[in-house]
Structure formats: C-alpha cells, structure tokens
Design a protein around this nucleic acid. Sequence first.
DNA 1: ATTCTGACGTGGG
DNA 2: CCCCACGCCAGAA
Length: 112
Amino acid sequence: MHNSDISFFAKVYEVAKLIPRGRVTSYGAIAEYLGSGRSARMVGWAMNASHNLKDIPAHRVVNRKGLLTGKHHFGGENIMQQLLESEGIIVVDNRIQDFEKKFWDPMKELKY
DNA sequence: ATTCTGACGTGGG
DNA sequence: CCCCACGCCAGAA
C-alpha cells in the first residue's frame, strides 16, 4: 500500500493519536510534519470531521499561539478546556499556560 | 468539472 | 501586544 493512497485526513488522525496525554500540538505542526506545511487549515477541518470517530484526541490540537480556537466544536461550553484540564493542562482565557513546555512537536518527537 | 469553505499561519502596519 | 489581508488546499456540494 502506498502512503499516497491514504487520505490527508487519515494521516492527520494517525499523528493526532500519537500526541501524549497532557501534551498538545498545533494544526500547523501536524501539517508540517505531513510535508504539507501550508495545509494547517485542512488539519483543522480534519479535526472537525473526527467527532464521529473514536480515539482521536482533537482537544490536544490548538493553534500556534496555544489558543483553543476549536472549542466551539466540542458541543458544550468548555468541553475542550475540561478535557485538557483533566490531563493537567492549565487553560486561562482560552490559552494554554506554559504552552512551550506542553508543546509536542511531531517533527522533533517522531523525526520521520 | 467548478465553486466554496474554513478548529490556520504569516507578514506588515 | 493587537488587527488585518492574503495565501493556502483537501474535501464537500
């Protein structure tokens, strides 16, 4: 099976599943890791479509500033924030505290 | 085939 | 720091 046979969304999900509990990454970082550095918006869209699926930690993907820009796609008011806080991440004003420390860069962590 | 749409990122002011 | 305009491109309609 060629890697190119796998949809962009599927690749995004594979990376998202690897984000450790209590860590976060960004849409752009995932896009860059997939060799499509200008497709950050697609990563967001993929996350939007991941709600039906299971085991996709979409709450661990935020924007490059550490803002919970996708919070409105989790149904209730602060579901995304609650999920993050349940993993030990502090969120103030929709922003992840100590973002640099919590940041998980697939490019560095996964290498390939 | 063609058009539209963003859970984004960047650069400039 | 904030705000805005623009480029981006896979997938849906």
